[in-house]
């Protein structure tokens, strides 16, 4: 019976080695996101939209600056520093400043492997460059899968597909030109309107909660803001599993709001429903890159926690 352990070891070894290799690629990817400078052109495609964009990314003294400009249709550009919008074409926009810990939170590939089956699925070429294909298959039906085509040289994703449970793509992000250059020229135009800081009220973590969450999703943000259009209070909660994210918006019910609303924009599901609480009726809106059924279930599970009122 001595061969059985050998067989077992043999059977176990390859997936383990596989796992180690793919997780190593993910670590390299995370590092590259913070360090690698480049310029390129990518296309983004989802149900109902196909657009091409030029991108420049610069890293100076630990600050990652990224400029994106749309090349087709209506002109649009945006400039971000460490993921925060600095300026953007279009109407005036206020955004909420991130905590460092929030926006740049890194998730260990090991943790990610609890929710996704991560494997190297082969090799391919994207934008004329050699890539390694990583497949991240969800371990449950509450999230979508990813296919990442990582540049062999820089480990940055040159192509990324979000896949539903049948393996059909919900969105495609893909470079057609990618050049890892040093000191790329990065300049925002006149039309790039500075983004201002939005006033928010901080909330306790327990102010609102969801009785049900898909495994691995945790709260990464909870604030209260006011809507620009109606000046009404809205609580904003963000949950993530390290890869997928969804937002929950809570506002007091008022006449004219719909009771139930569902829609799907490419990879993004949106569910609104009326929720009766002891503080009166609220409207819960769940938005994220998760299956519609998951969003629905979260919307049904939101409860008021520490008796906080929307102000």
């Amino acid at each position: 019976m001595r061969f059985i352990p050998c067989l077992l070891a043999g059977a176990l070894l390859s997936p383990l080695a596989q796992g180690a290799e793919s997780q190593n690629w993910l670590l390299r990817l995370q590092e590259a996101e913070q360090r690698q400078e480049f310029q390129g052109v990518f296309v983004y495609e989802r149900n109902g939209s196909f657009s091409s964009h030029e991108i420049h990314r610069q890293v100076r003294e630990g600050q990652v600056r990224e400029h994106i400009q749309q090349l087709d249709g209506v002109f649009h550009e945006s400039l971000r520093t460490n993921g925060q919008l600095e300026c953007m074409t279009g109407p005036r926009y206020e955004q909420i400043m991130e905590n460092q810990a929030d926006g740049l939170r890194r998730v260990q590939p090991r943790t990610l492997a609890q929710w996704y089956d991560i494997r190297t699925a082969g090799q391919s070429r994207v934008a004329g460059r050699e890539t390694v294909v990583l497949s991240l298959r969800p371990r449950d039906q509450h999230r979508y899968g990813f296919e990442l085509y990582l540049d062999r040289e820089t480990a940055l994703p040159l192509k990324s597909l979000l896949l539903n449970e049948h393996g059909q793509p919900l969105e495609r992000f893909q470079y057609v030109v990618f050049e890892p250059v040093e000191q790329p020229k990065l300049q925002a135009g006149q039309a790039c309107r500075p983004v201002t800081n939005r006033e928010v009220r901080s909330l306790e973590e327990q102010a609102w909660r969801s009785e049900w969450l898909p495994a691995g999703f945790s709260l990464t943000r909870i604030v209260e803001q006011r809507t620009v259009r109606e000046d009404a209070p809205v609580a904003w909660l963000v949950y993530g599993d390290g890869l997928a994210r969804f937002s929950v918006f809570l506002e007091p019910w008022r006449e004219g709001l719909s009771i139930d609303q569902r829609s799907q924009l490419g990879p993004t599901a949106a569910v609104s429903r009326r929720l009766a609480t002891d503080q009166g009726d609220l409207l819960v809106t769940v938005i994220g890159e998760i299956p519609l059924g998951t969003a629905e279930r979260v919307a049904l599970s939101i409860r008021s926690g520490s008796g906080v009122m929307l102000q």
């Binding site: 971000r80 925060q84 991130e98 998730v107 990464t220 943000r221």
Partner: peptide, 24 residues
């Protein structure tokens, strides 16, 4: 608003591309 928030770190450009596709 959901799309414009900073990415979660593992993949920072993709959320920005998503946001950009919502702007026009």
């Amino acid at each position: 608003q959901h799309a414009r928030q900073a990415g979660s770190g593992a993949e920072s450009t993709l959320p920005h591309a998503r946001a950009a596709s919502l702007e026009n």
